[in-house]
């Protein structure tokens, strides 16, 4: 199973640029960990309806009452680059 890790694809999905050394090391590290999962992935477990929450809590919805939060200035206060009140990034291609 572990040999199958397509580390380049995983890094692409995670949007992290890896250098060759990192690719090799991470592939090796991940393979080791994933090997450790073998026992778990082979277990025969009932296919119950999954509640992701440990306490099986149910959702409380919020009333639709709008309120003010961050000021425009606060919203942009950590922006690496901004112009005309907007966040600026290098061109994003569709």
């Amino acid at each position: 199973m572990a040999d199958k890790i397509d580390i380049k694809n995983v890094a692409k999905l995670a949007s992290i640029k890896l250098n060759q050394e990192e690719e090799d090391r991470l592939k090796n590290d991940l393979s080791m960990i994933i090997e450790h999962f073998d026992a778990l992935s082979k277990m025969d477990l009932p296919d119950d309806k999954i509640s992701i929450h440990p306490l099986g809590m149910s959702l409380n919805l919020a009333e639709d009452i709008a309120s003010k939060s961050l000021t425009h200035k606060e919203a942009l206060s950590n922006a690496p680059e901004s112009k005309d009140g907007q966040f600026v990034v290098p061109p994003s291609l569709d």
Partner: peptide, 29 residues
């Protein structure tokens, strides 16, 4: 970066340490 997607990939490569990268990749996988 020259595109926003390159900027994001480089930002994350530079900003995260090895253990964080490892866990993100493990979870992504």
């Amino acid at each position: 970066g020259s595109t926003s997607s390159e900027m994001m990939e480089l930002t994350r490569a530079n900003g995260f340490g090895p253990e964080v990268k490892k866990r993100i990749l493990l979870g992504t996988y």
